[in-house]
Design a binder for these strands. Structure first.
Lengths: 192, 192
DNA sequence: ACGTGTTGTCAACATGCGTTGGCAAACGTA
DNA sequence: TACGTTTGCCAACGCATGTTGACAACACGT
């Protein structure tokens, strides 16, 4: 222990740990799992590659630490019910622009089953319960949530991963205006 | 030349070439670019890795040959105009289920800029012109096409790449029923 | 000032990769 | 049968990767 009576151990290496994590998030988001090499991440963080192993055990461990994030969907205001579509889209958009690790998770999820599972767990633990609360016929919740995921992740794919110019050019409000009604319908409309 | 007067040279190795290409499509679709090794593809095709180099020059050349595909969107019937959404979704769905190289292209596009460019070229040369023909205000065509791409690729992502169970479970017609109106609105509805 | 644990560097390792060139067998033609 | 060409296999190369262990520099409580 460094201090006299801290509950949480404050290590002198915390700055290094953070630098590694920041560089890792950047590289994983930009290059995906395989092309983001430990050596490159270490170079960005201005430390030796072996430090990565000391603090995160392995490349897989580093990735797990880099993409540990919780979207906190259950905290979303569900009222008024006819605005839930726009609320959800806007929330996701903000989330994505503040956390580049989401792009990393998506890039890697395209190839790595473990990362794909992590994305699915967000669907299972957050989107499906929400769909169950706001939509008709609770047994349709998984399907309705999957449709919403497709709508939102599709935009994230074209905008943040593939970077289609027309998708990048869209403004925050424009996206909410177009996708909001879509998500709203997926969640609350009767079966077509 | 093997035969006496064939215009197209029919080589004895065509079977091998085809086997390599089939194995490559499968591996690229399943594992992405980096994890799909030439050695593994050669093992699947029951030939030596060096044959891949002989017939396709390099791994990049093999990938390019494996994902050479044309969606033929311009041939789509554009009438009646109010059915274009369902027509487009149904066409894409069939296309995707018949050509696993589309999944390969998507998996790789998540990491490789060249593959992402190929996907973008489909948007530019096929979807945008279509949007220009059926939608109001031609200068909005790129945006409307990008929204459609997001809707369709989002479904392909959750269904064929990430394999979310609820998305995989959807039937062809169910998808058309849900996504059809979305795409229809993206293409033809007035600006919200 | 000393000794202990932490933080960081360095060099090396084993492995798997894409890729290459040489050589043997099979084939088609004369 | 003899020849050149095509098809295939084999062994090896150079290289980049994740990972390891030994060792130096530093901080800090005594």
């Amino acid at each position: 222990m460094s201090s006299t009576e801290n509950q949480q151990a404050v290590r002198r290496s915390d700055a290094t740990r953070a630098a590694i994590l920041a560089a890792a998030r950047e590289r994983f988001a930009a290059d995906g799992y395989e092309r983001a090499t430990i050596r490159a991440i270490a170079r960005d963080a201005k430390i030796d590659p072996s430090m990565v192993m000391r603090y995160y055990d392995s490349k897989a461990g580093l990735f797990a630490a880099a993409v540990a994030i919780d979207p906190h969907l259950p905290d979303l205001p569900v009222e008024p019910r006819e605005a839930i579509g726009r609320t959800l889209v806007s929330h996701f958009l903000t989330l994505w622009e503040e956390h580049e690790e989401l792009t990393a998770l998506m890039r890697v999820g395209a190839t790595d089953p473990a990362a794909a599972d992590r994305m699915q767990s967000v669907l299972r633990e957050q989107l499906i319960p929400l769909a169950r609360r706001v939509g008709p016929e609770p047994e349709q919740a998984p399907m309705r949530a999957a449709l919403c995921a497709a709508a939102v992740l599709g935009l994230a794919l074209t905008r943040y991963v593939l970077r289609f110019p027309a998708s990048v050019a869209l403004g925050h409000e424009e996206i909410v205006d177009w996708l909001g009604p879509t998500v709203q319908r997926y969640l609350t409309a009767p079966t077509p």
